[in-house]
Write a protein that binds this DNA or RNA. Sequence first.
DNA 1: CTCCTGTCCTGCCGGC
DNA 2: TGCCGGCAGGACAGGA
Length: 281
Amino acid sequence: MPELPEVETVRRGLSPFMEGRSITHVKTNREGLRIPFPDNLKAALEGVRVERLSRRAKYVLAHMSGGGIVVFHLGMSGQMRIEPDMALYVEKKHDHLLLTLEGGSGIVFNDPRRFGMVFLTSEAGISQHPSFHLMGPEPLGNEFSGPVLRERLKGKRTPIKIALLDQHIVAGVGNIYASEALHDAGISPFKAAGSLTAKQAENLVQAIRDVLSRAIASGGSSLKDFIKVDGKPGYFQHSFAVYDRADQPCPRCHPDGKRKNTIQKIVQGGRATYYCKSCQK
DNA sequence: CTCCTGTCCTGCCGGC
DNA sequence: TGCCGGCAGGACAGGA
């Protein structure tokens, strides 16, 4: 479900509720998700204040007083919801982790497919943590540019669509926004990653930044089941140009819908790619 | 190294 | 109506 814009939407929603408040109670309902919950999760969090929330790629980071960091990953189906009063909250199926905050409100982590992750690291250790130390640049950050992308793609013969999903190349782009960005940049998803010209790399970087920024501004997309921390959906799926739009006219080269060229759905690396044959070269 | 496939898990949708 | 196969936004391991 969640790519960078959805995770950023979650972070923004949680921030005002969590920042500055201590965690008073930690409850887990199973041993873990994709990986086990840390043994010392309860000990590390109870009585400790959340200083601020940040995001790296598709991870939400809770920076705790004392230098600890709790890392949340939503996997495919994870949701983090704000509950105003944990004392009254009735648990739902797939509620795996519940955090009660100072004042009685709380955060519920629900994840049907259990591809999500929760783990601990620290300000000192995060840069060397296996999940982060070889991660590519943040696509909305200053360190991401045409030349940087081109350098990271150098020598790769894998299709550019597949390369964009590799978090070591650029971190935070997922299956939806990879298709959207390539369409926006007019680049074929089949094009060998290492063969992009400088201009194409520049265009692609701009397209990635643009599509991610616009999605964040819309509160993320809600294909299937993405909901924000308040339980409401995001709206960006209404803005998809190609994703989940097989057989529809290409809004880029045939905005009037009168021509026959339509969005194609194909499979690359076992995952759906949507693109326009006519304007992506 | 790169790259390709399979796997984790549940829910939902379409076809019969 | 019910059953079954296929597919779903991510990440990683293992093998070629």
